[in-house]
Design a binder for these strands. Sequence first.
DNA 1: TGCCAGGCGACGC
DNA 2: GCGTCGCATGGC
Length: 279
Amino acid sequence: MQKTMKTENVLAFVTELDLKKTFECGQCFRWSADESGVYHGVVCGKALAIREENGLILCDAEDTDIPFWRDYFDLGVDYVEMSGPFIEPPYLEMCANFGRGIRILRQDPWEALISFIISQCNNIPRIKKIISTLCACFGEELPCGLFTFPSAYKLAALDETALAPLRCGYRAEYILCAARAVVSGELNFDKLSQFSSEDAFAEVRRLRGIGDKVANCFMLYGLHRMDRFPIDVWMKRALERYFPKNFDPKILGLYAGLAQQYIFYYARTNERSDNLECS
DNA sequence: TGCCAGGCGACGC
DNA sequence: GCGTCGCATGGC
């Protein structure tokens, strides 16, 4: 399954992109590191092996589309500048410093939608396991041994019995609903990308099994709407404990979603849920 | 073993 | 509009 890295291309400097943080901060679920620290993943049917060495981010050059991957890692913008306003409260500044190097990936909207439907009321190891099984069962195997994410058309043709091996419980119904909405044209990602943030949110929010949290995750990670601020149990605890009462994420501006990612990553890395006094 | 997890929908008030 | 409950499953 591990691909040998041959001719290497430089994708970025490590000061711009921290692979471990970016892949393990909770925004995506399909990248994994092998024993030598090389991360392997598949995006939109394209496989990549990527690693850090001597201050550089190197990727496998064999059929590697560098512009595609630079776009995926959102390397065209300055994250230091975007996170400049994240200085209050002090907890946010600490989270931003801790998360330096995280980039909000430009993920496939379809994969992001299904991934965050699966994420609901679930822990991250189990989310990864369910998505991995989904891809192994219904995706296509690539020469490197990894699987593509199954298309909406593939999933829309299934029923809940076919999804039983995923062991995803009540979420199976929601996955099928989303797949059928895409196939019917009721949900069109190209159209959504033209909508305002509020309109696109309302549109995806109409689907069964997609509430505020999943819709916001889809907006942020699937449509790259950086103003969205998903609030899950970890965020709720952090906000209640470290932020002023009635704190409105809107004051964080256009990049509130990045602040959210820093907070989530810090909280999940450093704080156990049972040592916080909040409910 | 029991608590919890990147929630949501239905229901009662 | 708001609080509560059941939902399916398994990581820890």
